[in-house]
Amino acid sequence: MRAFAVVVAGGAAGTLGRHGVSSWLDSTHLFPTGTFVVNVTGSFVLGALLAALVVRGDDTGDRRTLRLLLGTGFLGGYTTYSALAVETDTLLRGDHVALGLTYAVGSVLAGLVAAAAGIAAARAVTR
């Protein structure tokens, strides 16, 4: 039950963070900037967090609590791949096929690059 509460607390904070960033960045532009930014930055931070935790030892005790609080909870609430799917569908159905495909593929590729950069950054710092 403690693990559940930790994930819920992190998720609530992450969702509020996502809402704040998305509200700040999204405007009348067609490109969903807010969702793109939260997903890419969330991928970077998740890569860094998990790499740093792995270097420090087994997934037990405080490391497990941090992973659940920050990784599963906060970053799970902060990132939003469901919004990516909805926004891509909206662009595709709105006759913005090139932008929709660019957004979808670009988001996934940028997320992968960001996660790899996060892993590399954490490894460099924790050595």
Rank of each mutant, 00 (worst) to 15 (best):
H19A: 09
G20N: 07
V21G: 08
S22H: 06
L25P: 08
L25Y: 14
L25Q: 11
L25S: 12
D26A: 04
T28N: 13
H29I: 12
H29D: 04
H29A: 05
L30I: 02
L30S: 00
L30K: 02
F31G: 08
F31A: 07
G34W: 03
F36I: 13
V37M: 00
V37H: 04
V40Q: 05
G42L: 08
G42R: 07
S43C: 14
L46R: 09
L46W: 00
G47V: 13
A48P: 14
A48E: 06
A52I: 09
L53F: 02
V54R: 15
G57I: 02
G57N: 12
D58L: 07
T60M: 05
T60Q: 08
G61N: 06
D62N: 12
R63D: 10
R63E: 07
R63W: 10
R63G: 03
R63V: 10
R63H: 09
T65A: 09
L66V: 11
L66A: 09
R67S: 15
G71R: 10
G71Q: 13
T72M: 08
T72S: 11
T72G: 11
G73K: 03
L75S: 13
L75V: 11
Y78S: 05
Y78D: 05
T79F: 01
T79A: 00
T80L: 03
T80A: 00
Y81E: 02
Y81H: 09
S82T: 10
